[in-house]
């Protein structure tokens, strides 16, 4: 049975002491965040799935360390990010697994426009999404990660500094560089279209 009354630090403490149900609850609470982040980096379901499983198995292996972890989500996302980047490097050079969203199991779009959109707007949004994905892929991993974590996943700069293990100033500068590059790419595309 799920223990929804407990806070994350309480669950982490219980799990560090060996409570298996606390671990299950942590998996349930964080699995989507890990999947979403991994998918943003790797762009395919199979790899994102691998990251989800491996991240939680790694967390489990470091059960005893968790007693000294201040921010669980940062710790967890750091593991997920590092593993995703490892996979990304491994995949580079290999043919990229192109994936159509329809191949996903029971796909439900989490956030397809909260406002009502016309088909043309929807198409435009999808096209821009694809463009931005390509543009993101052209960025160096740290810049890509920073942009994804901040502008897509909505983490704060402090959280990102914790996840990427770097000073907040680095997060700021990487985000700025990434945004500048992305803006340039988008602008270039628009100009070509016009």
């Amino acid at each position: 049975m799920r223990d929804m009354s407990k806070t994350v630090p309480e669950l982490v403490e219980s799990f560090a002491k060996g409570d298996q149900s606390a671990f299950a609850e942590l998996v349930t609470r964080y699995r989507k965040k890990v999947y979403s982040l991994a998918y943003q980096i790797l762009r395919n379901h199979l790899d994102a799935d691998e990251v989800v499983q491996e991240t939680f198995v790694r967390i489990y292996r470091r059960q005893k360390e968790l007693a000294n972890v201040k921010y669980f989500s940062t710790f967890l996302l750091r593991i997920a990010t590092n593993y995703s980047i490892d996979l990304l490097r491994k995949r580079k050079g290999h043919s990229k697994i192109e994936e159509d969203s329809s191949s996903l199991p029971g796909t439900v779009q989490l956030d397809l426009a909260r406002r009502v959109v016309t088909p043309s707007q929807k198409f435009e949004s999808k096209r821009l999404g694809a463009e931005i994905e390509k543009a993101l892929d052209r960025l160096p991993p740290r810049q890509k990660m920073t942009a994804i974590l901040h502008d897509v996943e909505g983490y704060t700069k402090t959280e990102i500094a914790g996840i990427l293990e770097c000073p907040e100033a680095t997060v700021r500068s990487n985000l700025h560089i990434a945004r500048t590059k992305l803006r340039k790419i988008l602008k270039h595309k628009h100009k070509r279209k016009e």
């Binding site: 489990y60 996903l104 779009q109 397809l112």
Partner: peptide, 26 residues
């Protein structure tokens, strides 16, 4: 654009299966 670029949710069945797999592995 970036904030709209959210990931598709693979659905409840995927979550149930994956969570069981994780728990089995641990």
């Amino acid at each position: 654009i970036l904030s709209r670029n959210r990931v598709m949710d693979p659905g409840p069945q995927y979550w149930t299966e994956t969570t069981s797999l994780i728990l089995a592995r641990t």
